[in-house]
Amino acid sequence: MRILIVEDEPVIALEIEAIVLDRLPDAEISIATSVKAAFEVIDDTVSLAFLDIDVADGKTYSLALELRLRHVPFVFVSGANRDDAPDGLAEERLVPKPFAAREITQQLEALAREADGEAN
C-alpha cells in the first residue's frame, strides 16, 4: 500500500509517517511538502492520502479534487478553516491539529477499508 502525506512541517510529517508505519509496517510512504511536489508523485499506485490544507505553495484543494477524481480516499490533517473549500471539500474528513495518534490511526483504518473497497 502506498500512502501520500502532504505536510510542510517536517516534524508533523514524520509523526504521521511513524503512526502509519506502526499500524502498516510494509506501507510505502511518500512525503510531499508542497502541492507541486505532491502532483509529481501521485500516480495510480497511491492508495490513500493525508493532506494538510495549507502548505508551502498554497492550499491542497486542487490535489484533493484530483484524488477524488482518481477515487483515492484522503483525509485533511489541518488546523485551517475550510470555509473557502471548493466543490464540497468542506465536508471531507478532517483530523484537526493538534491531533492524537489514535485520530490518525482511526482515519488510517477507515481510509484503508475504503481503498480496499475501491480496489475490489
Rank of each mutant, 00 (worst) to 15 (best):
M1D: 03
M1A: 09
I3Y: 02
L4Y: 02
I5E: 00
E7Q: 07
D8G: 08
P10T: 02
P10C: 08
A13K: 07
A13C: 09
A13F: 10
A13Y: 04
E15T: 06
I16F: 03
I16V: 15
I16G: 09
E17N: 08
A18W: 02
V20Y: 08
L21P: 02
R23C: 03
R23N: 12
L24V: 15
D26W: 06
A27M: 01
E28H: 06
I29T: 08
S30R: 10
I31F: 05
I31S: 04
A32D: 11
A32P: 05
T33M: 10
K36Q: 13
A37D: 11
A37M: 10
A37N: 09
A37C: 13
A38P: 06
A38D: 01
A38T: 01
E40A: 08
I42Q: 00
T45Q: 10
V46L: 04
A49L: 05
A49H: 05
A49Y: 04
F50H: 12
L51I: 05
I53M: 07
A56R: 00
G58T: 07
T60G: 08
Y61P: 04
L63H: 12
A64M: 07
L65A: 08
E66V: 09
R68F: 01
L69W: 14
V72N: 10
P73W: 02
F74A: 03
F74L: 12
V75R: 11
F76S: 02
F76Q: 02
V77T: 07
V77D: 02
S78T: 11
G79W: 00
A80Q: 06
N81K: 07
R82N: 02
D83Y: 12
A85E: 14
A90W: 00
E92L: 09
E92Q: 14
P96I: 06
P96W: 06
P96H: 14
F99P: 04
A100R: 15
R102D: 11
I104W: 14
I104E: 02
T105G: 11
T105M: 13
T105C: 09
Q106K: 15
Q106I: 14
Q107Y: 11
L108Y: 11
L108F: 05
E109Q: 14
E109S: 09
A110P: 02
A110T: 15
A112F: 13
R113W: 12
R113I: 13
A115M: 01
A115Y: 03
E118L: 09
A119S: 13
N120C: 10
N120V: 13
